[in-house]
Structure formats: C-alpha cells, structure tokens
C-alpha cells in the first residue's frame, strides 16, 4: 500500500501529512490529527455524524479518502468557534437545548453552517432538506431547526 505526502489546511492551519492510500479523511482527522470531534456512526455515508466542510461544501468524511483532501481546505466542528467565542449556531444550539447525547451534533452543526453560508435566510423547508442527511435519535429535530432559524436571525453561521 502506498503512502502519500499531502498538504491540507485544517481549520485554518496548514498540515503536511503522510497518509496511506486507503485512509479516509475521517481517519486522518481523528487518528492523525486528534480531531475527535468528528464522529464515526456508520462508516458508510448513511448517518452524517462525520460531516466536515471541504472547500466549504459539506461531505461525509468517511467516504472521502485523505489523499483527495490534498491541497484543500477542511473545516471540522473544532474550527467553528474562534478564540473561545462560539459561533451564532453553536450558541443557538445551546439556547434551544437542541443537544442531547451530542454524538450527531458536530456533523449537524457543520451541515447547518454550510446551509447558512449559502442561504443566510433559509426557509424551514430548506433547513429540513439541508439536515436530512444528519440523523439524530434524541432530539426529534425541531429544536435543531429552531436553532438554525435563531442563528440566521442573528446574522448567520
């Protein structure tokens, strides 16, 4: 199996990494960089817990190879807060008690963040569609949808 040297920007920091051909982006983030906020719920792109932004687009990091991230910008849940200041979305999730077990929350935040970046004033239908790939078994989704609306009102992601 080949080892590839890649350069990838993760949460604003440039990293040079040696990764095996078959390593997924999810494994790279968790095992190589210790960014364990991104979760593995199915390894098959079915649950959305591993969602990260690649060049601003939400992707299931369990379905993308690390080598494909070469030269690209990756944002994980750890990159949403800046200098300890939570994003509007993170604050809204807390305010609405839209987190329970917390395992889907990182991926959910990333998908919602991407939505607000492309549609700062989304309709409820747009929010539901944007989050349809992020499964949650605890909250029943409505509080998450409300939190996204609150963040939108406060000026975005």
């Amino acid at each position: 199996m080949g080892i590839h040297s890649i350069t990838v920007t993760v949460n604003g920091a440039k990293e040079r990494l040696d990764v095996p051909s078959n390593m997924t982006l999810l494994q790279m983030l968790r095992d190589k960089l210790g960014l364990t906020g991104t979760k593995n719920g199915c390894s098959a792109g079915e649950c959305g817990a591993c969602t990260v932004l690649v060049d601003g687009e939400p992707v299931n990091s369990c379905l993308m190879l690390a080598v494909e991230a070469d030269g690209r910008q990756v944002t994980t849940v750890e990159g949403l807060a800046h200098d300890g200041q939570l994003s509007a979305l993170q604050e809204a999730i807390i305010e609405h008690n839209a987190v329970q077990c917390g395992f889907c929350t990182p991926g959910m935040l990333i998908s919602a963040h991407a939505l607000l970046e492309r549609a700062p004033r989304p309709t409820e239908q747009q929010i539901r569609e944007a989050l349809v790939g992020n499964l949650c078994r605890c909250t029943g989704y409505l509080r998450i949808i409300e939190a996204v609306q609150t963040a939108a009102k406060k000026g975005g992601a």
């Binding site: 968790r30 906020g37 849940v77 939570l86 993170q90 807390i94 008690n97 987190v99 917390g102």
Partner: peptide
C-alpha cells in the same frame, strides 16, 4: 428553572469525549 445543560458547551465544540475518542 430552565438552567442550561452542563454538558452543552463540550458537545457543541467537539470536545466532549466519547469512548472511541480516548487515546
């Protein structure tokens, strides 16, 4: 009263530790 969850900050920042996250 509706006090905020004690675990919310960790869970929205990705710093809450689950078993698979332990080194």
């Amino acid at each position: 009263k509706n006090t905020p969850r004690v675990d919310a900050y960790e869970k929205v920042t990705g710093t809450a530790i689950f078993t698979d996250d332990l080194p």
